[in-house]
């Protein structure tokens, strides 16, 4: 509780890391010019998406300390917003069908609105209670999309117009990733970010010091949901169809959390690193071993939680990352403190 990590004062743009990041993004932006096959483009794209998801998860899970086991809900809200606006709006909303570019912003906005409303209820919970409530939300949303068939097509799902253009898609994912990582880097270096860290370390203490914790938590939650919603909306379009099973796909939820944990929670560069490592390990290593591949992922998660609590970034020294376990252990303590307070 005394170790409030990574709170050293900073000045923007004097940090080497942001220039490295921008250099990397430029390199990535030039990648399509080397005329890679679309399969390779698609692989890189899927890695970018995992980085984006892990980074957004880190905003609420790692930085604010609210371990969200149902973050894929916002992905789903985004995916269905795009799906409905592109194919159903005439029948259901009595509005003209939108092309993808106009539908996509709504995916983010709907996810954000949903997170705002949901956050009012769930962000009052702490530690494992919040995690379980979010997991329940995810499962409930999957069932709801099944039931609301006039809107969502039910179990049969929705078919989106197949307009595939991998190069264009690549730049969209690159943009989403740059935006997400840039945002969390910026947040980490502002007072807002320091407040989030303070909430994570000692919520009551933060409140006593005059931080509006509810506002900060809700904003972080909504921001994370906004970007996750955009990813969901984009994913729906490039997959050309959605149904409850492919949208609320548990392995995606797990991988997003795992990438963040593997890289190092609460750091800017940990989750992208974790996502990249996880993606390439999966592609080049485990996919050779068939059935052992899921087993390998599971064992790796256990090993990371047990022996590498700070993730890869934590392994490299004291880098301000926190462990999943400590996030949970902090909470009951904090809430018992609360009971003592009048």
């Amino acid at each position: 509780m005394t170790r409030v990590s990574g709170l050293e004062p900073v000045s923007l743009f004097r940090r080497r890391e942001i220039w490295i990041w921008l250099g990397l993004v430029t390199l990535a932006a030039l990648f399509p010019l080397t005329q890679p096959t679309t399969a390779r483009l698609l692989m890189t794209m899927q890695m970018f998406l995992l980085i984006t998801l892990a980074t957004n998860w880190n905003l609420i899970g790692g930085m604010t300390g609210y371990v969200d086991f149902g973050h894929l809900t916002f992905f789903g809200v985004g995916a269905y917003t795009v799906g409905i606006l592109m194919t159903r709006s005439k029948e259901v909303l009595f509005a003209p069908q939108l092309p993808f570019w106009q539908a996509l912003p709504f995916a983010g906005l709907m996810a954000m609105l949903f997170a705002f409303l949901l956050g009012m209820a769930t962000l009052r919970l702490r530690g494992p209670y919040f995690s379980i409530a979010m997991l329940a939300t995810l499962l409930a949303m999957r069932e709801l999309t099944r039931l609301a068939s006039p809107l969502t097509g039910g179990g049969a799902g929705l078919d989106l117009p197949p307009e595939l253009n991998r190069v264009q898609e690549y730049y969209i994912t690159l943009g989403l990733m740059t935006l997400s990582v840039g945002l969390i880097w910026w947040i980490r270096n502002t007072e807002f970010g320091l407040s989030l860290l303070a909430i994570r370390e000692d919520e009551i203490g933060a409140e006593m010091r005059g931080i509006n914790t509810t506002l900060h938590k809700t904003v972080a939650f909504s921001l994370a949901a906004f970007l996750t919603g955009l990813v969901g909306g984009f994913w729906a379009w490039q997959n050309t169809y959605i149904d409850p099973d492919v949208v609320f796909f548990e392995p995606r939820n797990l991988e997003m959390i795992m990438a963040a944990v593997l890289g190092g929670l609460g750091t800017v560069w940990g989750p992208p690193l974790g996502a990249a490592v996880l993606y390439w390990l999966r592609e080049f290593f485990w996919s050779r071993f068939l059935l052992a591949h899921l087993l390998g992922l599971g064992i790796m998660l256990m090993l990371v939680v047990l022996f590498l609590p700070g993730g890869i970034v934590g392994l490299m020294g004291r880098r301000g990352s926190v462990s999943l376990a400590s996030l949970w252990q902090l909470r009951p303590f904090a809430s018992s403190q609360q009971e003592e307070n009048p």
Partner: peptide, 26 residues
């Protein structure tokens, strides 16, 4: 705060190289 973006760079470049070159590993 200094070193890990570097490591990340190295890894990401390695990843990009892996995609870019037609490795028989695929």
């Amino acid at each position: 705060m200094r070193r890990y973006p570097l490591l990340f760079t190295v890894l990401l470049i390695a990843a990009l190289v892996l995609v870019a070159c037609p490795a028989p590993a695929t």
